[in-house]
Design a protein around this nucleic acid. Structure first.
Ligand SMILES: [Zn+2]
Length: 265
DNA sequence: CGTCTTTGACCTGCGC
DNA sequence: GCGCAGGTCAAAGACG
């Protein structure tokens, strides 16, 4: 739809001259315009994330209030460990006395639900981080195995996650994150902080738009940032991405990390 | 060849 | 102390 506008290459756009540029017929201005476009979308997505964070905080306050008014009780599957259902988003770990022996102060847990294809037996959730599986167990009360992952993006990162298909809803994956990453999100945060000055390396799975955002180089591209065009494109992107469970998982992971890093109140 | 997955063995906490 | 269940280790194999 709006992609027509991208293809219109304005000759006034190729201002930036990189150190190494392939002299083929590739419209550099168009590419930079697209990158600028993507960077703007990325900025909007960040705003969306922070907005979602705000909403989440409000919902959490409300949830804790409701929980304090009417303590949850829904005896369903297993008589013990049922409490976990009530404290699903508990970032504080001192209200229940279960397993806080090893690094108790540093382990913060969060639970994320990801909708996937029920026929897909893999427990891999693409949330942007890099995980290494180190175990799998069949647990009681659930015919589906639980997979154990460790963050392998940074060698010293203490974060672990458990992934298990819900016994009730086969299309639902329950992802339990434990700990806080000691590094940036490889596909979200890093995009906004890492500067890749001379060339674009494509090792990261994400887009890296900020090459055009360095101070002093991205002026003169403002005319492409038509707000109307942006809105249509972003809305289309959002509509597409929200259908993607992997994207949902990535956003959920990013939100969880933000909450864990900056807990409300 | 390095990295990741698989999987059985092992460790640990907890209830009885 | 024993048994059970959850969590982790590590050797072996797969994969690029
Ligand atoms: Zn990590």
């Amino acid at each position: 739809m709006g992609s027509d506008s991208i293809r219109q290459s304005s000759p006034s756009l190729d201002l930036r001259v990189g150190p190494r540029r392939s002299p083929d017929q590739a419209p550099v201005g168009v590419l930079e315009a697209m990158m600028n476009q993507v960077s703007e979308e990325n900025r909007r997505l960040t705003e969306m994330v922070s907005e979602m964070y705000t909403n989440h905080s409000a919902l959490r306050r409300r949830l804790s209030y409701l929980a304090s008014v009417a303590p949850c009780e829904k005896g369903s599957a297993s008589p013990k460990r049922q409490r976990v259902d009530c404290e699903k988003h508990a970032a504080s770990d001192d209200e229940h006395g279960c397993k806080r022996s090893r690094e108790d102060a540093m382990t913060k847990t969060s639970k994320v639900y990801v909708r996937t294809d029920p026929s897909d037996p893999s427990l891999v959730v693409m949330d942007g981080y890099q995980w290494r599986k180190y175990g799998q167990k069949v647990t009681r009360g659930n015919p589906f195995p639980r997979a154990y992952f460790r963050c392998s993006f940074a060698p010293s990162c203490p974060v672990k996650k458990k992934v298990q298909r819900s016994a009730e809803d086969k299309s639902l994956l329950v992802v339990t994150y434990e700990g806080v990453h000691d590094h940036k999100h490889p596909s979200l945060d890093e995009v906004y902080t890492v500067k890749c000055p001379s060339h674009i390396n494509s090792s990261a799975p994400s887009i890296d738009p900020d090459v055009t955002r360095q101070p002093g180089v991205d002026r003169g591209l403002g005319e492409i940032e038509s707000p109307k065009f942006d809105r249509a494109l972003v809305e289309q992107m959002v509509a597409t991405l929200t259908k993607d469970p992997n994207f949902t998982a990535a956003v959920a992971a990013a939100i969880s990390e933000r909450i864990l890093r900056h807990p409300p109140a």
